[in-house]
Amino acid sequence: MSVDKATVRRIAHLARIGVEEEELEGLSGELSSILNWIEQLHEVDTENVPPLASVNHATLLPREDVVNDGGDPDAVLANAPERHDDFFAVPKVVE
């Protein structure tokens, strides 16, 4: 599987990672070689094998539906790059 420059540009957009035009060629080569190496998985017969998302041994138990934390906007906002009052501030999204 080869990943061309247009595909690198598209996935970089999906991942919201800025890439410079001159980086596309190099990334295209790196990603293609990694994906080509991964292709060997297609040798494996996985007919009727159920996917395994996690080996989690824990059983999920219901909890009391109560508030047990929160109510501390200053702690929540303490690391914000920019805040206004009790809100995270971002560049204007809606005109």
């Binding site: 998985l41 297609h42 494996v44 996985t46 094998v49 159920p50 996917p51 395994l52 998302a53």
Partner: peptide, 9 residues
């Protein structure tokens, strides 16, 4: 999905 199946194996 393929990787999750091989993970099961």
């Amino acid at each position: 999905l393929k990787a999750q199946q091989v993970r099961r194996l």
